Amino acid sequence: MSAPVGETLAELKRHAQRLAVKRPPGLTDKNRARLRPLRDPDMLRSHVALPRRLEERAASRPPRSRALEMEIAVAIAILLVCPIRRRNLAEIRIDRHLQRQKDGRVWLVFGADEVKNRQPIEFALHPPVVALIDRHLTGHRPVLVPGGTPWLFPRRDGAAPCAKGALSARISRTIRRELGLEIHMHLFRHLAAMLWLEAHPGNDEAARRLLGHAALSSTLNAYAGF
């Protein structure tokens, strides 16, 4: 007499779990290969200097082309100092997420309900990044969208934020064109973790907070090799 269907399925699941190939902790080989060029100090400096380089080059372009280039310069500048997820970057609201203090400081803030793992995000933006954002908002963005648009990276009709995939693709194309590197938006998070942990070995808790992981195990599993 054959076993009931439920027992047979349970037995198959147990076999499948024993046979499953588990990926070892750490980054994929592809992401490690993409990070490797940035271990070269000269290439890393070029990567960090890219927003300024884009702004300087954009100065000689027609207004719309200049504004588009500045938009990507701003996005890269933010990712370099605030390794946030691509959805959060794409949905930055000027009137909500960029919080300006009386002392001149500007904070990038996301509530727990806006973040993938329900961990609130708060970064103090460096003054050069704030200055770049302000130059874009006052001198370039009005060419692209209607006045009063609240998003930093808006759709061209101003009715919604840009699609995260479209913004990510533009960032990757720009970096490939300028530096010859294959860098997607999430790789900025891996880069931040790599630089921090190589400069501060063992300080995984700070890396966890930097990336906004809910559990330290997530950081340890992803970046054990650093």
Rank of each mutant, 00 (worst) to 15 (best):
D42V: 01
A58Y: 02
R34T: 10
D40G: 00
S46F: 00
P62G: 13
A67I: 01
P63T: 03
L35P: 10
R64I: 05
L38A: 03
S65D: 08
E55A: 14
N31D: 14
D42N: 04
P24I: 14
A49K: 09
R34H: 12
R64S: 05
E56L: 11
M43S: 02
V48R: 03
P62H: 10
R53N: 12
S60H: 10
K30W: 09
A67T: 06
I72G: 09
E56G: 08
A58W: 02
P25Q: 10
E71I: 04
P41Q: 04
E71Y: 08
L68K: 08
S65A: 08
R36K: 13
E56C: 06
L68E: 15
P62N: 05
T28R: 06
R32H: 07
D42A: 01
R53A: 15
R64W: 01
K30C: 12
R36N: 13
A59N: 11
M43T: 09
A49T: 01
P24Q: 15
P51M: 07
E69V: 07
P37S: 12
V48E: 02
L50Y: 09
R36S: 11
L35R: 12
A33G: 15
R32F: 08
A58T: 04
P63M: 06
A33E: 13
L50K: 11
S65Y: 03
R66C: 06
A33S: 15
D29Q: 14
A49H: 04
E56R: 13
E69L: 12
S46T: 00
R66K: 07
R36Y: 11
R45E: 03
R39Y: 02
H47N: 06
V48W: 02
P24T: 15
L54V: 03
P37W: 02
P63N: 05
E55S: 10
S65M: 06
L35T: 12
R34K: 09
L50H: 05
L54S: 11
S60L: 10
R53M: 14
K30M: 14
R66T: 05
T28K: 06
D40S: 01
L50A: 04
P62S: 10
A58R: 13
A59K: 09
E69Q: 14
E71Q: 15
R52K: 08
R57M: 12
R66Y: 01
P41R: 01
I72W: 08
